[in-house]
C-alpha cells in the first residue's frame, strides 16, 4: 500500500466517525481515483452500520434504580468531616468553653453599650448567625456559630489561604448576632459562602458567593464575593466581581428613563449596602454580644 493511501485511509476513518464532517475535495478526488481507498471507505461505512445491529444493546435492568435507591435509603448520612480533636473529648470541650468565655469577656468589655444592635442579614441567615460590622456600621463577611458544611482539611489550608495582608490587618470590626428567623429554612449559597469565609476558605467562599450572585443577581453578593476572592489572593476574579457590582441592573426600570442620572450616588449598589446596614440596624437590648 502506498504511504499516501495509508494516510488517506486514516483521514477517511476519522471522517467517517464524525457525523457532521464534510469530506475535503482532495480526499474526495483521491477516493474517486484510488480503488483501494474507495473500498476502504465503503467497508468502514458498512461496519459502522452493522455494528449497532450486531452488538447487543445492553440496557441496565429496570430494577437497578429501585435497588440503588433502596440501598441508599439504608445508608446513614455520612458525617461531615470537620474539626478532629487531637485531645480527649472532655479536654476539647473544656478548652472550647474557656475560649468562648475569654472571647465573650473581651468583647463585652471592649464594645460600648450602644453597639448592642441587631442586624437584619442581607440575605436569609440562620438564627444565631454572627454578623461582623465595621466601625462605620457596614456589614462585612458574616460568620456563623453553627457549622453548615465544613470542608475537609480546612484547618490545614487556612494558613496557606490567608494573604499576608489579611494576616497583618488588625480586626477592625465587631460582631453582633442576628436574631431574626430566616425567611427560608433551606440553606442558601450566600450562607454557605459566609461559612467558608468564616473558616478562612476564601476561595470556596468566593465560589459560593458567585453562585449566590448568579441565582439572585444581587450586586451586594457580587461585592462580598469580590471581597472573598481578594482575600483568597485572586485579584483578577475580585476585579471581575467588583465590576459586576458596579454594573447597573438590567431589570431596573429606572435605568431606561432619560432624565435619570446614571451616576446617582443613591442608586449605586455600594450606597445600597450602606443604606441597608444603617437602616436595618435596630437596637434591641436582648441581643447577644460577643
Amino acid at each position: 500500500m502506498k504511504i499516501i493511501c495509508m494516510l488517506r485511509q486514516r483521514q477517511l476513518a476519522r471522517l467517517s466517525v464524525k457525523s457532521s464532517a464534510i469530506m475535503p475535495t482532495t480526499l474526495k478526488r483521491h477516493t474517486h481515483t484510488c480503488a483501494e481507498c474507495h473500498h476502504f471507505y465503503e467497508d468502514i461505512r458498512r461496519i459502522q452500520q452493522a455494528l449497532p445491529q450486531a452488538l447487543a444493546q445492553e440496557v441496565s435492568s429496570t430494577d437497578l434504580d429501585n435497588l440503588l435507591w433502596a440501598r441508599l435509603q439504608q445508608q446513614p448520612q455520612a458525617p461531615i468531616r470537620g474539626w478532629r480533636s487531637p485531645y480527649p473529648l472532655y479536654m476539647a470541650a473544656m478548652s472550647t468553653v474557656l475560649c468562648l468565655a475569654a472571647v465573650g469577656y473581651y468583647y463585652n468589655n471592649e464594645l460600648p453599650e450602644e453597639s448592642a444592635s441587631v442586624v437584619r442579614p442581607l440575605y436569609p441567615l440562620r438564627e444565631g448567625t454572627v454578623v461582623a460590622l465595621t466601625p462605620a456600621g457596614n456589614p462585612t463577611v458574616p460568620t456563623t456559630k453553627q457549622g453548615l458544611v465544613p470542608t475537609p482539611h480546612h484547618r490545614r489550608n487556612r494558613k496557606k489561604q490567608l494573604t499576608p495582608k489579611a494576616k497583618n490587618t488588625p480586626p477592625t470590626h465587631h460582631y453582633v448576632v442576628a436574631v431574626n428567623a430566616p425567611a427560608h429554612p433551606q440553606v442558601t449559597w450566600a450562607q454557605v459562602g459566609s461559612y467558608y469565609a468564616a473558616q478562612g476558605e476564601y476561595r470556596d467562599a468566593a465560589t459560593a458567593y458567585t453562585f449566590a450572585y448568579q441565582q439572585q443577581r444581587d450586586p451586594r453578593l457580587a461585592f462580598v464575593a469580590g471581597q472573598a476572592a481578594e482575600n483568597a489572593g485572586d485579584p483578577i476574579q475580585a476585579l471581575e466581581l467588583f465590576t459586576q457590582t458596579l454594573q447597573p441592573k438590567l431589570d431596573n426600570p429606572n435605568s431606561d428613563k432619560p432624565g435619570k442620572d446614571k451616576h446617582d450616588e443613591t442608586s449605586s449598589p455600594l450606597h445600597s449596602i450602606r443604606n441597608c446596614s444603617s437602616a436595618e440596624r435596630t437596637v434591641e437590648s436582648s441581643a447577644t454580644i460577643f
Binding site: 441496565s60 435492568s61 437497578l64 440503588l68 441508599l72 455520612a78 458544611v149 470542608t151 475537609p152 470556596d204
Partner: peptide, 23 residues
C-alpha cells in the same frame, strides 16, 4: 457485574460526599 459496579460506585460517592470540594 456492571450493575453491581454502578451501584457500588454511587454508594461510595454518596458516602464520600463530604470529601468533595465546592469547585
Amino acid at each position: 457485574e456492571a450493575e453491581d459496579a454502578v451501584q457500588e460506585a454511587f454508594l461510595r460517592a454518596f458516602q464520600s460526599l463530604p470529601k468533595i470540594r465546592v469547585n
